[in-house]
Amino acid sequence: MKLKSKHIAPMVLAFFIIGIAGTMLLNLWSTELGKVPAQYQSGEFEGEYDPSDIRGSYTFEDISKAFEIPVEDLAKAFGFTDTPDPNIIKAKDLEETYGSLEQGELGTDSIRLFVAFYKGLPFMAEEKTLIPRLAVSILKEKANLTEEQKTILKERTISLSELRPSETEGEAQVATEHETTEEFVIKGNTTFQELLDFGITQEEIEKIFGMPMGKPGEALRDYATNNGVEFSEFKAALEALVASKKQ
């Protein structure tokens, strides 16, 4: 069988078109980068993925796959629990959502810090990197934090509830745990987790509301509305409790 140029041309095109279209149909074709971070090249953690290589384009799913951290933890830590599909949230979305703050930055480096501490991997966060209080709570619960790491987190904690655009009437507040105690204010979107983080016990919360506490990530106002009560009825009692803890 002999072939001429007029045969080769369509065959070349056909191979590429069929190959690309076929893999597109099978969902295998992607011209986006495989989101795989670099590995540590030496030392104790050699061969493990290096959180400092997480890029802004990495989705929560990419990070979850590489570091084996549940997407739910990432979504909760960075305040994306209301998002229909947190898998597709990109690290750089943090910057777009919270922006650069006067007190520092909540962005890709915050995720790097969270991932590194979650997995017990070495990492030096940038000077201005902040981390949400909910992320710190998750780390306290799931990671074996050293005293040094706890101190680092303390200095960089920020409350997401202070940053949500709808609530950002004043300045965003960065709070170290010490400052938190001084400045913690009860708002409609304060979550149960934040109350717990502040040092209020579940018993105390349930005593005020007179019913079982909601999910940790649930906002107080939503919880009240869902249970047919007015948030404002309980706000004063919660504030009094907070004030008593501040002393």
Partner: peptide, 21 residues
């Protein structure tokens, strides 16, 4: 089971198409 950094799945597929061709 992974691609090295900066390598895309499309490169991998194009390589196999090219090999077949």
């Amino acid at each position: 089971g992974r691609f090295i950094k900066k390598i895309h799945e499309s490169s991998w597929i194009l390589m196999w198409i090219t090999f077949a061709l």
